[in-house]
Deep mutational scan, measured.
Amino acid sequence: MPVRRGHVAPQNTFLDTIIRKFEGQSRKFIIANARVENCAVIYCNDGFCELCGYSRAEVMQRPCTCDFLHGPRTQRRAAAQIAQALLGAEERKVEIAFYRKDGSCFLCLVDVVPVKNEDGAVIMFILNFEVVMEKDMVGSPAHDTNHRGPPTSWLAPGRAKTFRLKLPALLALTARESSVRSGGAGGAGAPGAVVVDVDLTPAAPSSESLALDEVTAMDNHVAGLGPAEERRALVGPGSPPRSAPGQLPSPRAHSLNPDASGSSCSLARTRSRESCASVRRASSADDIEAMRAGVLPPPPRHASTGAMHPLRSGLLNSTSDSDLVRYRTISKIPQITLNFVDLKGDPFLASPTSDREIIAPKIKERTHNVTEKVTQVLSLGADVLPEYKLQAPRIHRWTILHYSPFKAVWDWLILLLVIYTAVFTPYSAAFLLKETEEGPPATECGYACQPLAVVDLIVDIMFIVDILINFRTTYVNANEEVVSHPGRIAVHYFKGWFLIDMVAAIPFDLLI
């Protein structure tokens, strides 16, 4: 008679799926529990143990900040960024110097990925580790590398530091407007667009060049630039800015003055950032001319202004700041037409079709709590990747769950009947059967004279019903998954307890 339990259901295979997918890609990662103190490590794979030199037993239950890997060259700011990422709910990448158990130093890129439950609360953290440099290539500990984003994938490793954006290309926007319009339909740009040429040739750093990471940081200074100062900065030398009595002219307006920039070969870094931020506020060169004239017309309804409409929906549905990093990277690809469009465009503009998908598509409701890094690593669709929660398995109709209350009560009843059979069957065979043979035949009273025979008949009927119930009862397979398919249940029961239950259900007393 089957006594099969499996009270692990309803099970959740999400954690096993993450481990299996990460292991298949030869990654070095740990999984931490966000619900406990210090976000203790609950799993670390073999790749991480080989990377740091510690065994799994030495890593388990330690804080996922990996303070046991810190050393003299470990930056405090990087460690603080990892700790801050564990307090938030967004994906974050941090470069930090770690030390192995043998004392060797290596520069590592740590990717902190939160995993949320159905309520939107962070319950786990996945920390992925990628070695960037070994100890002989690690720089000085005073050099802070965590304020910069990861290198873009479309640049060669040897040319990542030679990417320079020439400031004269930004200063000569109005001069290039006529050349853009003359391109017409034969050019790649839309009317009114501004073409910015980027020099990728390796050259020595000069005062006129600005690194790509500095251009990325310009967006942080746009908020500090007032509207009046932006307007004066875009007017140009024809209309000098008016300053109040006793007030000095704005240095932001002076930063885009061609006369002032041409007199000296070098520009201050602050002026460069502010000038680029001011130019980015204009949607095209037409807006710059309109600002000089004193009238700013409404933005025209053409394809170039609607190019950012799908980007707005993608940004609203993005799951991490990696989408913004990807957008900034692609927006700086050289030799393309940049349409400086305000994100607050007309909502009635139709979304044009684009061959290049900048932001990841909208994630469906079932995966809105899973970050983009987890979705990318697992390579699963929205119909396959579940949320991290207890999910009731989908069972067929008329199927009994093996952990249901009805099955528990039924098993206790069958257990009592088995005990009765084990006690009274030998007793009936030894004593009652002998008395029946010696006594007179009682054929007239039937079952009324033999109450134990009636009980034995009921017990046999219950055993037959138990066999039928076992054909529709779920079970737990070797992978700790609840199986509810009727065919698989029948095959599993035939290979197991079916023969024993059938022999126990045969009414031998009635056959004798």
Rank of each mutant, 00 (worst) to 15 (best):
V59L: 10
H309W: 12
G236D: 15
V198Q: 11
A193N: 15
R35M: 11
A193M: 15
R62L: 10
K101F: 01
T371R: 07
S320D: 15
A85C: 04
D136N: 13
D197E: 01
H309A: 12
G183Q: 14
M218K: 05
R20E: 09
T305H: 12
S140V: 07
L69C: 01
H143S: 09
G246I: 15
Y43T: 01
N339L: 01
D67Y: 03
R100C: 01
P157R: 14
A34G: 06
V122I: 08
P2E: 04
F340T: 14
H143V: 11
R292N: 14
K101L: 01
G226R: 07
P240A: 15
A32P: 01
R73L: 09
A156E: 15
E357R: 05
C44D: 01
L267R: 06
L324N: 14
S322I: 08
V131Q: 15
P205F: 06
D46C: 01
S239Y: 07
V384C: 02
M60K: 01
L212E: 06
R269E: 15
S104H: 14
G103W: 01
E372H: 15
R301H: 08
K373S: 04
F129P: 01
L225D: 10
D199P: 15
E372M: 11
A228N: 15
P299E: 07
I333N: 12
T305V: 07
D219C: 06
D67F: 05
L225E: 14
E50T: 13
K93N: 13
P114Q: 01
S140G: 08
N12C: 08
K28R: 09
P141G: 11
R292G: 14
K101H: 03
Q335V: 03
K332D: 14
I30V: 13
I18M: 12
G53K: 05
T319E: 14
G47E: 06
L311E: 05
E90W: 13
G149Y: 06
I336M: 12
R326K: 13
A142M: 09
L170M: 11
L86A: 01
K116C: 10
S266G: 11
V325W: 10
E58M: 06
S255M: 05
M291V: 14
V180E: 05
G381E: 08
F14D: 12
R281D: 14
G314A: 12
I31S: 01
A360Q: 09
P237C: 10
L165N: 10
